[in-house]
């Protein structure tokens, strides 16, 4: 589904190479996790895939079901089914959460040539999704992420995922800033979306999140590359021994 080959990325304004030939393939129905030390390029990977500015792709490719992602605008990638759950969700004063969700969903539907959802249908649809994530009507009315706690922001990310129903979900350190209960809630939300047609790429520092969202494949990333790939046991190994051994072995 998501296929990344020899991806090389540098900062647009600086002569600094961040991704140095990254290969990764996420199949439909699978959950892949990426772990790695600070500065290994994990967040850059998520931003480059979702189309954020400030990066320059100097080589390689990234495709979603054969479609060249790197040629598309951010909104086109979203309409193609890609979704990034942000590590730091952005606060947007003055834009109501509901307006935001409806505008996003209908824009994607329009881009795919589908009919827009009516206001009434949409309200029903969102309320149902919100309920499962314990997001109340008040939170839906407030401006996007403004005054939300860390946990509320992350739940709001998952709500967007549930509403937009992307085929390929990237979660960038969704566990950061979450307490145990919130992590469970968020994980349940993600697990509810797991199905045969949907791929996940879960970026995290800690094995803890992977107790809740069980990965099929675990990758270790360092210095802009995937240096080791294995099963769930790889995450446990990192948790116990840190990255030192794996990195030494990779060299």
């Amino acid at each position: 589904m998501l296929k990344i080959e020899n991806l090389q990325v540098k900062l647009e304004d600086e002569d600094k190479q961040i991704l140095k030939g990254l290969d990764l393939e996420v199949e439909a129905g699978k959950v892949h996790a990426i772990m790695g030390p600070n500065g290994s390029g994990k967040s850059t990977l998520s931003y480059v895939l979702s189309g954020k500015g400030g990066y320059e792709v100097t080589g390689g490719s990234a495709t979603l079901d054969g479609e060249d992602l790197l040629e598309l605008e951010a909104e086109e990638r979203a309409a193609a089914g890609l979704f990034l759950a942000f590590q730091y969700p952005v606060e947007i004063p003055g834009v109501g959460n509901m307006t935001f969700l409806r505008t996003a969903l209908n824009a994607q539907r329009k881009a795919r040539g589908e009919e827009e959802m009516s206001a009434t249908d949409f309200l029903k649809f969102v309320r149902e999704k919100a309920k499962a994530l314990q997001i109340d009507a008040e939170m839906l009315k407030r401006p996007v992420n403004v005054g939300f706690s860390g946990g509320e922001k992350k739940r709001n990310e998952i709500l967007q995922m549930a509403v937009l129903q992307p085929r390929m979900c990237i979660l960038d350190e969704t566990d950061s800033g979450l307490d145990v209960d919130a992590m469970k809630l968020v994980s349940d939300g993600v697990n509810a979306l797991r199905d045969a047609g949907r791929g996940f790429l879960v970026i995290t520092h800690y094995q803890r999140l992977l107790d809740h969202i069980k990965p099929d494949v675990v990758h270790i990333m360092a210095d802009g590359r995937i240096v080791k790939t294995g099963g769930p046991e790889l995450a446990l190994e990192v948790e116990t021994n840190g990255y030192a051994d794996i990195l030494a072995e990779a060299k």
Partner: peptide
């Protein structure tokens, strides 16, 4: 940042 956030959800620029 806000603009990218909206676009990343499929809202055209």
């Amino acid at each position: 940042d806000a603009l990218f956030y909206l676009r990343s959800r499929g809202v055209p620029e």
